Simulated scan of single mutants.
Amino acid sequence: MARKKMVHVRRVYEAPAQADGARVLVDRIWPRGLTKEKAQLDEWCKQVAPSTELRKWYGHDPERFTEFSRRYRNELKDPEHADALAHLSDLAKDRSLTLLTATKQPEISEAEVLADLLRS
């Protein structure tokens, strides 16, 4: 039986936790005011981030999250996004994976959509 993948979503500004495993930033834009040292990332996978057009349309409006999630899942089918998603899935195979985002509401971010996909 396959082991359920441990995928977490956190803000990149939070201090790393013991259980984080691989720490991957999934935003297209580097977080404001954060140095690479302070972020303590394993990698930055901006290829998996939503398109600029989709990100701007969404604007982290909670009422648009369901539609954003649907549109973003559609974007994830294009080759560049699909390759990046497959890479994240590989990272999550043998260890915990923490998807990092700069948004103030990670529960309605692309990181949450990705985590949901990776867990299933």
Score class of each variant (00 low, 15 high):
Ala2Glu: 07
Lys4His: 14
Val7Gln: 10
His8Ser: 12
Val9Thr: 04
Arg10Ser: 13
Tyr13Lys: 10
Glu14Ile: 03
Ala15Ile: 02
Ala17Thr: 05
Ala19Lys: 08
Asp20Ile: 09
Val24Asn: 12
Leu25Cys: 06
Arg28Gly: 07
Trp30Lys: 02
Trp30Asp: 01
Arg32Thr: 08
Leu34Tyr: 02
Thr35Ala: 09
Glu37Gly: 06
Gln40Asn: 13
Gln40Phe: 01
Leu41Pro: 12
Glu43Thr: 01
Cys45Trp: 00
Cys45Tyr: 00
Gln47Trp: 01
Val48Lys: 07
Val48Ala: 09
Val48Cys: 03
Ala49Asp: 08
Ala49Ile: 06
Pro50Glu: 01
Ser51Met: 03
Lys56Arg: 11
Tyr58Glu: 01
His60Asp: 14
His60Tyr: 15
Asp61Ser: 06
Arg64Val: 13
Phe65Tyr: 15
Thr66Gln: 09
Thr66Gly: 04
Phe68Leu: 07
Phe68Arg: 08
Ser69Cys: 06
Tyr72Glu: 03
Asn74Gly: 02
Asn74Gln: 04
Glu80Pro: 14
His81Cys: 09
His81Gln: 10
Ala82Leu: 10
Asp83Gly: 14
Asp83Glu: 15
Ala84Trp: 07
Leu85Asn: 08
Ala86Leu: 08
His87Met: 08
Leu91Val: 01
Ala92Arg: 04
Ala92His: 07
Asp94His: 14
Asp94Gln: 13
Ser96Val: 02
Leu97Asp: 10
Thr98Pro: 08
Leu99Thr: 12
Leu99Ala: 11
Thr103Cys: 11
Lys104Glu: 04
Lys104Thr: 09
Gln105Trp: 03
Ile108Gly: 03
Ala115His: 01
Asp116Arg: 12
Asp116Met: 05
Leu117Arg: 03
Arg119Ala: 06
Arg119Leu: 05
Ser120His: 07
